[in-house]
């Protein structure tokens, strides 16, 4: 078995209002950065897992994303998997 580390991004769907992102966007002019717009806020999740190969590791992470880490009604996810030394 090998140890892998996964880095996962969970973001609100593009067509959904993200009130946090909107509030942060609205603050940008107050700090002199009016050129920044379109802030959207999601989650970054890291985890470790044991798997026999990369393909299996990716399948397990994908399952965790679909079942728990993201709610596909409101969010989308992407991830990368790296083998740990």
């Amino acid at each position: 078995m090998k140890t892998y580390k996964a880095s996962i991004d969970v973001m609100p769907h593009d067509n959904l209002l993200d009130p946090q992102g909107k509030a942060v966007s609205g603050a940008m002019p107050n700090l002199g950065l009016p050129e920044i717009t379109g802030v959207r806020i999601g989650k970054h999740i890291t985890l470790r897992l044991e798997a026999k190969d990369r393909k299996t590791a990716e399948a397990k992470v994908d399952e965790a994303c679909r079942k728990l880490l993201a709610n596909l009604i409101m969010e989308k996810y992407s991830f990368s998997v790296e083998e740990q030394a």
Partner: peptide
């Protein structure tokens, strides 16, 4: 909703 026993999801209030 999270359990899939009801359709849909509940998001942060529009006003945050």
């Amino acid at each position: 909703c999270e359990a899939g026993l009801l359709p849909g999801a509940l998001l942060h209030n529009g006003g945050q």
